[in-house]
Design a protein around this nucleic acid. Structure first.
Lengths: 150, 150
DNA sequence: TTTACTGCAAAATGTTTGCATAAGG
DNA sequence: CCTTATGCAAACATTTTGCAGTAAA
């Protein structure tokens, strides 16, 4: 879990050139708290709404979009349409469960090194690779004992 | 490019347990012809509309969804919201260009073998992995000389 | 002939926009 | 203060749904 101290959040906003408004602090806080859940704008809104009932859904949409554009957070790949967000963390992969439609983080340093090596050697035609991720699709086989989310 | 012979398309539909209606044949044909373009439902509709003006957009939506569910085609990962489709082909990766927002196919047998090996050895917790893909994000560096799309 | 599919139009969902007001630097 | 962000509501885009009619097997 990342830092949830509001002063630090404020600082991260300022460093990225944003006005540190209450709304932005709270949105960034909510996404951070939901890290690993790959929330939609609506879910971020639900998360922060109880404590911040005056912050509008529209602002959450705008703010998430602005943050993603500035790479303060990132958009998560999905095959379902609809935008999902997550905090930027270390490189990791996602497992998509076609049963439950969950997106589950899968961190594996060995895999990351393997890929980092591969792409450092291999030049991809005319592309400056900024990041990579492996997307696994599959099905849970033991519904109870599962990879822990967050 | 895959086979565009209508009898073959008809057969593939029948084999998947579908009634081989004209609409389905034409939708499957259009997606196949657009392979590598990762079209939206709207784009598939635009493709087939001139020759088939009576086929409705709603049918295209339903048909693509049905096909994806039956894994006759697949949904493509995107960070933009909105569903995109493609024919099922061999395992391959995608490069997403954050400038042009294109999704470009990247086939590399070496990379595929590397990953196939990795996942055959490695057991992923409680998951039956059905497929994997690498998603690269980056930027084109030479706008003119690019990876050819289809 | 029977069942499943299609077209249509309406509804639901998800996201963006414009503008007057409010707040941060 | 001046600029930029917010709230609100309306607009827009995308996708789904229900149902009567139609076509495939």
């Amino acid at each position: 879990m990342q830092n949830l101290n509001r002063n630090d959040l404020r600082q991260r906003l300022t460093e990225s050139g944003f006005k540190a408004t209450h709304q932005r602090i709270v949105v960034l806080e909510a996404v951070t708290e939901l890290h690993g859940h790959h929330p939609t704008a609506e879910e971020v809104y639900q998360k922060l709404n109880p404590a911040n009932p005056t912050i509008s859904l529209g602002t959450v949409y705008k703010t998430l979009d602005t943050f993603a554009e500035a790479e303060l957070i990132k958009r998560v790949l999905t095959e379902e349409g609809g935008k999902r967000y997550d905090t930027c963390t270390t490189t990791h992969s996602h497992i998509y469960c076609s049963n439950t439609r969950e997106i589950i983080d899968f961190e594996d340093p060995e895999l990351e090194n393997l890929l980092r090596d591969f792409f450092s050697k291999k030049q991809v035609n005319n592309f400056e690779i900024k990041s990579f991720a492996v997307q696994l699709t599959g099905k849970k086989v033991e519904p109870d004992k599962q990879i822990s989310i967050k």
